[in-house]
Nucleic acid binder design. Structure first.
Lengths: 188, 188
DNA sequence: GTCTATAGCTTGATAGAC
DNA sequence: GTCTATCAAGCTATAGAC
């Protein structure tokens, strides 16, 4: 991609925003082209298999972001409190304080797209495992830790829907505030 | 089947399923026609303003269902425990044990559609108020009751996304199991 | 009230110039 | 690597027969 006028990372970011805002079916090639600043034919040059490949790249990009800003920080030797403070701040940034949807939600109504569905499932399981480790560190048994992690993720996902419908990020903010207690078991 | 009129309620149910399965943009007139058994022109006879009107009717139908099977049961004089048992069973039915999406989620990425957005917000606030009353009945102050209600709804919505991505309804089931404690404050 | 047929636009995708 | 131009198929929506 040496001669590209727009860097790959920047391009992927812009494409991601379209999928998060409109969902899989609503993210048309026209919208993707307009948002990226490229023409449709140029998008096909970079993603020869078209929209499915773009969606898969978006899912992969989001996974990579989470790996760097959520999963990896939780694996350091820092205290649970310090790690969670960083991760919560990063989640606040990723979801733009509750104003942007989760890619997991936006992409999971794609219909016939097994590869994408598998990628979303893989990413979600990695997220669960990262959160579950926090629960284990605070004394939860393995299966309880996994359930607690999934519940915490469910609250985040759900609060983003509510923030969207209500045009009010308050529920999302409270969810992030409660995340430490949620994972460490001080609340159900 | 040809030339036989379909009852309004049955028709609305089938249209609703398409929106819940594919989202607003993915629910094309062709899919709506195929699922309803009517031709596109017949759908326009019943909904002259087209897809926007269908989506609005779907939102209204879901609201009516919730009013009858969730909001009203919570207003009876029965015990909190008994009321919640009924409501939880009805939610399990509506979401088909976690295999069907929430209309709130599926319709809220519609883009430019202020009327639909307002209807979704209205329905969600009614749901919040119904759950909040349960929290108040168990001693929560008004604003805490409202927050607790929204959190409970967020968990339901989020667990449906997770169930969809994981193809596993376990998280949704656990969310429903925890709903009574969630609302009455025995868990955060 | 439902149908067939079709209009006009948008979609995902391709060909070929530069 | 990006562009203009184009295609067939799909889209929302309409007209008019029965």
């Amino acid at each position: 991609m040496a001669h590209s006028t727009i860097p790959d990372a920047e391009l992927l970011d812009r494409l991601t925003e379209v999928f998060r805002a409109y969902g899989y079916h609503g993210a048309s090639l026209s919208r993707l082209a307009a948002a990226s600043g490229l023409e449709k034919a140029s998008l096909y040059h970079r993603f020869p298999k078209g929209k499915q490949q773009i969606a898969l790249a978006v899912a992969g990009g989001v996974y990579a972001w989470f790996q760097q800003h959520v999963f990896n920080p939780l694996k350091t030797a820092a205290s649970t409190r310090d790690k969670l403070r960083i991760v919560i701040e990063n989640l606040r940034i990723f979801y733009a304080d509750g104003t942007k949807s989760c890619a997991l939600d936006a992409l999971s109504l794609a219909g016939e797209n097994d590869e994408l569905a598998a990628a979303l499932k893989f990413a979600l399981l990695a997220w669960r495992d990262a959160f579950a480790q926090v629960a284990r560190d605070s004394g939860a048994p393995p299966d309880e830790a996994g359930s607690r992690a999934l519940m915490a993720i469910a609250k985040i996902e759900g609060s983003l829907i509510l923030a969207r419908v209500l045009s009010d990020p308050a529920v999302f903010r409270r969810t992030l505030d409660e995340l430490p207690d949620q994972l460490t078991g001080k609340a159900g």
